[in-house]
């Protein structure tokens, strides 16, 4: 059993288990930190950088989703600087793809949109990049619109870690990174996809959707994930 430690988050005294992350302890105490790549039940990759927090005595900013709590730690989750960086990260994401909310299946149920609203982002100060990206509608039940993909790799991880199929992966690097199925074959021709639909449910945006949904109809249900992860852990005896 891991030790319990006490720490301060935003001046508030809180306690947590040593094996917990700053994000977990913050959320247990009702302190909200924006996240996009993190999802309870999946491994953490620390990629979106939205959850960066300040820790007293550490010059670097630390991602709350992968930073373990420790005794006497003093964490600041919100500051003028952190908010500015977070807004810029979301602006970068909007500028990277083609996010046209008004015609998106996920309008109103999108984590990217929610995060922007939470951060009071009212315009995008970066030039839009308008990439050319092809929609993959080859799967009989689901679709991928990479124009709305933020490369959070949640789908990659849920497919690999929970479903065990590893259909999704990332190809290319840098600004040319792109989500692919199998060895870059159309989704509908994938030999590994079990059509379980987990990726669709945990995708934060309208990039993965169920066919036949119209604008704003695509609500997602990622809630199954913590239970599945918990049951799996129990079965493996950990």
């Amino acid at each position: 059993m891991s030790r319990v430690v006490t720490l301060k988050i935003n001046g508030q005294d809180v306690s947590g288990r040593e094996d917990e992350t700053v994000l977990q302890v913050a959320r247990e105490n009702g302190i909200e930190i924006p996240t996009l790549c993190h999802l309870e039940g999946l491994s953490n990759v620390g990629a979106c950088r939205l959850c960066l927090v300040e820790v007293k005595g550490v010059s670097r900013l630390l991602p709350a989703c992968v930073t373990r709590v420790s005794e006497g730690m003093e964490v600041t989750t919100h500051s003028e600087r952190l908010e500015r960086y977070r807004r810029m990260i979301v602006e970068l994401l909007f500028s990277e793809g083609n996010h046209v909310c008004s015609v998106c299946v996920s309008n109103g149920h999108c984590e990217l949109q929610d995060t922007a609203i939470q951060l009071r982002l009212d315009h995008i100060g970066m030039p839009y990049r308008f990439p050319v990206r092809q929609v993959d509608a080859s799967h009989s039940r689901y679709g991928l619109d990479p124009n709305r993909c933020i490369l959070c790799t949640r789908c990659v991880r849920v497919c690999d870690e929970i479903e065990g199929a590893h259909t999704w992966d990332i190809m290319g690097r840098g600004i040319n990174s792109q989500l692919i199925t199998d060895m870059h074959t159309p989704w509908g021709e994938s030999e590994t996809c079990t059509s379980c639909g987990k990726c669709v449910q945990i995708c934060p945006t309208g990039a993965l959707f169920i066919k036949g949904k119209s604008v704003a109809e695509m609500t997602k249900r990622p809630d199954f994930l913590p239970y599945l992860a918990m049951m799996r852990n129990r079965k493996n005896g950990s």
Binding site: C48, S95, E96
Partner: peptide
């Protein structure tokens, strides 16, 4: 840096491209 960015994290993946532009 833009060409060599691995593309994992948002600031480097998109930021280097914006800075290059």
């Amino acid at each position: 840096s833009m060409a060599e960015s691995c593309g994992k994290c948002v600031p480097c993946r998109v930021g280097t491209a914006q800075m290059y532009d």
